[in-house]
C-alpha cells in the first residue's frame, strides 16, 4: 500500500472556507437550512463546516444533525458481517427544511442513496443538496451528483481516498492510497 498526499495545509483550509462561502451564496444567512453529516466520517466535515460557518456569520443560525444510515444500506446480507450502527443525532423535523447532506468522499453513490432514504424518515424536506469534500469522478454506480465539491479526484477502483481531520487523526489532509507503486 502506497499513500500520496493530495491536499493539505493552506489549500485544505481554503477548501473548507470556500465550501462555507458557497453555502452562504446559495442560502443567504442559512436560516431554514439543516446541515446533516453522514456517519461515520461525514460528521467530521459537517462539524468543521458548522464551526467555520459560525465563525464567518458571527452567530449560530443553522440546524445541525448527524445521521447513521446503517439500516438503510443496500448491502445487508451481501457482506460477511452485518454493518454496525453509529449514533444518529437529529432532534428536529426535516419538514420544509433545506437540507445539506454532508459526506467526506463520494464514490459509488450508494451511501448517499441510503442517506436520502434515511433522511426521509425524519420528514419531507423542501430540498436536499449534497456537499462532499472529495468527489471520485467517473466511479458512480447510481445517478447521484454533488452540488458542492471540495476537490475532484480521478482514481481507479483499487485505490482508496481518505480524508483525515485534525480533531480525530491529528492532521488535516487528503490521502490517495494505491495497492501498487
Amino acid at each position: 500500500m502506497q499513500a500520496v498526499e493530495i491536499l493539505s495545509g493552506k489549500a485544505f483550509a481554503l477548501t473548507v472556507e470556500r465550501l462555507c462561502h458557497q453555502l452562504i451564496e446559495d442560502h443567504g444567512d442559512l436560516a431554514g437550512v439543516a446541515l446533516i453529516g453522514l456517519q461515520p466520517r461525514g460528521i467530521l466535515l459537517a462539524r468543521r463546516l458548522r464551526k467555520e460557518l459560525q465563525h464567518i456569520l458571527g452567530k449560530e443560525l443553522l440546524q445541525y444533525g448527524e445521521l447513521d444510515i446503517t439500516f438503510h444500506r443496500d448491502d445487508f446480507r451481501h457482506r460477511s458481517t452485518p454493518p454496525a450502527p453509529s449514533n444518529t443525532q437529529l432532534d428536529f423535523s426535516l419538514d420544509e427544511r433545506k437540507v445539506v447532506l454532508v459526506d467526506d468522499v463520494l464514490y459509488t453513490g450508494r451511501t448517499i442513496r441510503a442517506g436520502l432514504d434515511a433522511l426521509l424518515t425524519f420528514g419531507r424536506p423542501a430540498s436536499v443538496q449534497l456537499l462532499v469534500f472529495i468527489d471520485r469522478r467517473f466511479s458512480r454506480e447510481l445517478p447521484i451528483q454533488p452540488d458542492h465539491v471540495g476537490k475532484w479526484v480521478d482514481s481507479i477502483a483499487d485505490q482508496r481516498v481518505s480524508v483525515e481531520w485534525k480533531e480525530s487523526d491529528g492532521m488535516d489532509r487528503v490521502m490517495l492510497h494505491s495497492q501498487h507503486a
Binding site: 438503510h72 454496525a84 450502527p85 424518515t121
Partner: peptide, 23 residues
Amino acid sequence: FRTADGFKEVLNRPIKKVPSLRD
C-alpha cells in the same frame, strides 16, 4: 445491546421503519 441502541433511535423517528429485512 449495541445494535438495539441503533434501533431504539429508529423507534423515536417520525417514520419508525427501516428496510433491512424487506426480502
